[in-house]
């Protein structure tokens, strides 16, 4: 009863705020954008999530149970290994490089050039990065031929560039730059006064890193590592350009299931694989969001 009598009052109040009796049409202005993303972002995601549980005949769990096939498990493990190792190593080297940049002149040419180069390599390289390594340590590559002439064979047990270790090396080429881009703002947030405060209280360099800078940078570092993981896990272009055959990682398995010429055309299974990727990346990115919120607290 109270709700029923309360409603008309609230309605008139809100209508008065909205300007007379006219019904507000403000929401119409947001329709084009939300319509567009609804059609080209939300709907495709929905199609993947729902389609994973459907086949041509109707609802099924076959796509999901097909995920346990040995070659799918292998590529999933490969994907996780590739992403974990390149995320950790990329985060480590990227953090070193970011620190080397952060301690220089913030408006200097070095930082400007390195930042732009990191942007290119981290986000726009894809195919080109695969080419770069083929030209470097491929069988006709400059460095490979040079080392061979010095009597060093980097492929004593066969060419590993086109296998998982090779992929890891190539992935580092975009993981380190991404780390630099993501971690640099966190390092910029470190105030020199904190170091001075540590010193005036008698603390050493070790104390400063252990008790001041370290704890402050840890959430940012872990968050960036997670972002690197998601980045490597989602990457398709580099591996597709580097490895022609087989299904070494999950994105390639999805592509194989989508393309009819491989004989494995199965859109329902592609959606199940895509769902696995969404779930993994969503978990990682949620953790990232939590950590970056913690970082944002003191960065501002």
């Amino acid at each position: 009863m109270t709700a029923a009598t309360g409603n008309p009052v609230a309605n008139t109040a809100s209508r008065r705020l909205g300007g007379g009796r006219r019904i507000s049409l403000d929401w119409l202005g947001a329709v084009p954008f939300f319509g567009y993303v609804g059609l080209f972002l939300i709907l495709p995601t929905g199609i993947v999530v729902v389609g994973a549980f459907f086949s041509k005949e109707g609802p099924t769990l076959a796509n999901i149970s097909d995920l346990t096939q040995p070659f799918i498990i292998t590529s999933l493990i490969n994907s996780l290994l590739l992403s974990t190792i390149t995320a950790i190593a990329g985060a480590f080297f990227g953090a070193l490089m970011a620190y080397a940049l952060a301690t220089g002149n913030p408006n200097g040419a070095l930082r400007r050039i390195v930042s732009a180069a990191c942007g290119v390599l981290a986000q726009f390289g894809g195919v080109i990065l695969a080419f770069a390594f083929i030209a470097t340590i491929g069988l006709g590559g400059f460095v490979y031929v040079f080392l061979l002439n010095q009597g060093i064979d980097i492929y004593p047990n066969g060419v590993w560039l086109y296998t998982l270790p090779g992929l890891m090396l190539v992935y580092m080429y975009f993981q380190i730059p991404l780390m630099v881009l993501v971690f640099l703002p966190a390092l910029d947030g470190i105030r020199p006064q904190w170091r001075e405060a540590t010193e005036s209280l008698g603390g050493s360099t070790w104390h400063y890193w252990r008790y001041v800078a370290g704890p402050l940078l840890t959430p940012a570092f872990l968050g960036a590592t997670l972002l690197l993981f998601a980045n490597a896990f989602s990457a398709y272009a580099t591996v597709a350009a580097l490895v022609n055959q087989g299904g070494i990682v999950v994105p390639i398995q999805i592509a194989n299931a989508l393309q009819s010429e491989t004989g494995a055309h199965d859109p329902g299974f592609a959606k199940a694989l895509a769902l696995v990727m969404v779930v993994v990346v969503a978990i990682v990115m949620t953790l990232y969001a939590v950590l970056s919120r913690r970082t944002a607290k003191w960065l501002q």
Binding site: L39, F40, L41, L43, P44, T45, G46, I47, V48, G51, A230, F233, S234, Y236, P251, I254, A255, L258, P267, A270, K271, A274, M277, V278, V281, A282, M285
Partner: peptide, 15 residues
Amino acid sequence: LTIPAIVLVVGLLPI
């Protein structure tokens, strides 16, 4: 950022 491009492709095919 959270939805890999390859996943978007899978969902975009029917569209």
